[in-house]
Nucleic acid binder design. Structure first.
Lengths: 124, 124, 124, 124
DNA sequence: GTGGTCTAGACCACG
DNA sequence: GTGGTCTAGACCACC
């Protein structure tokens, strides 16, 4: 499941977890019904606290991306094909609005933004 | 000097202050030599603690955007005309790299990104 | 971790702290990964305010000598063996340039300076 | 009298004044009996406050380098030839002791110090 | 438990 | 008047 956690990052660990797993689901790499590892096992593998994993799982459930069955485990929710796209687009839209308000505040024009975007997208 | 502070924002107050004032300087609205309001006065007007304002001012100084003269006040630093552009571009580049790595992780293509960018830039 | 604070010194307390701890790190007495005492505990032991300790710790982080993990503590950064020497030499060079410009302004010759240097270095 | 004042320096202005004038006296460029300019004139020329100049003059008097005659002006004190050397050496010794304790705290050896000293003295 | 932020209020140095 | 430092004490986020 290729998750990487940085202890030195400014972002809280639970949020790093949340972002990476939600990305896996929204890109379709974790399909509907997929069973996430138990929090204790995930905590061991990622070398983080159980509490931290639990918090990330809770956030995922709150976003409607997973679905907890007590005593069974946590499963990726069932999505209609277009529903998953809608959720993804909402997340991107929300984020991009915030990003762009920052660019605008520094006086970046649309043309400059597009040029930069192309350049950065091209690099790995 | 239109500064707006949100006490409920996730961002710390001193950082909101830092971002807004650095934007004013980088957009050229506060020219070289401009004297910022005294920290005590700014604290009163913004209804925050003196220390919070000071912390923001310190960050501005650390970034080289202002310089402090004890007993006199805090002044916007002297910039070569192109230097200010270079600083602005560095800030934008750094931020955009981080933003785009998020878009990519959600599988957004360059074409989609540009389209969204245009749409959001158009709205106010 | 022998730290001594003088309340009567002209130097601010946080700077005394910064200088002594950075010296410990640069001399290699606090190795990579070493965990500094929690700021509240350090404040108690040194009989200064928590905020004063925090300010010193922040300066250390800004210099890249330590890194802070929220909820965990503050750890001496990982250095390549020669990197730590480079940082030390930069600090000494910068300081010595300033010192020597003062000696020169008082008309001290190189020969006199070396002689004095030897004499003072010999004394404890 | 070639005095240069930096408003952006970390050093207080009165101390910059004090250091530069005491250097002029100790190097012998301002001989015994030389009359310093009136504080109001000096303040005008240096574009600093009268209070600041006064403070510097007072420090000079306290060090025994000048001598104020009310209603007449401030005059460089009378020194025996060797006395001026003694004062200069005291000042340098005091400063160098402090400087060297810093070098030692960073683990700089005497040999390294001498080498650096030669290198920096050679450069302008 | 840890660090992160914010507050109100005090005293000092500088100009 | 300005900024610089320090204090005690509070609340929050994270682990």
């Amino acid at each position: 499941m290729n998750i990487t956690i940085s202890n030195t990052s400014e972002k809280p660990i639970y949020q790093q977890l949340y972002e990476q797993i939600s990305a896996l689901i929204l890109r379709g790499e974790l399909g509907s019904g997929f069973c996430l590892p138990p929090i204790r096992q995930a905590a061991l593998e990622l070398r983080v606290s159980v509490i931290t994993v639990k918090k990330a799982w809770e956030e995922l459930e709150r976003s409607g991306l997973i679905h907890t069955v007590t005593g069974k485990g946590c499963f990726v929710a069932e999505f209609a094909a277009d529903e998953i796209l809608r959720i993804r687009d909402d997340m991107i839209l929300k984020q991009m609005k915030s990003d762009i308000s920052y660019y605008k505040s520094l006086g970046l024009t649309l043309a400059e933004a597009i040029e930069l975007l192309k350049k950065i997208y091209a690099s790995p």
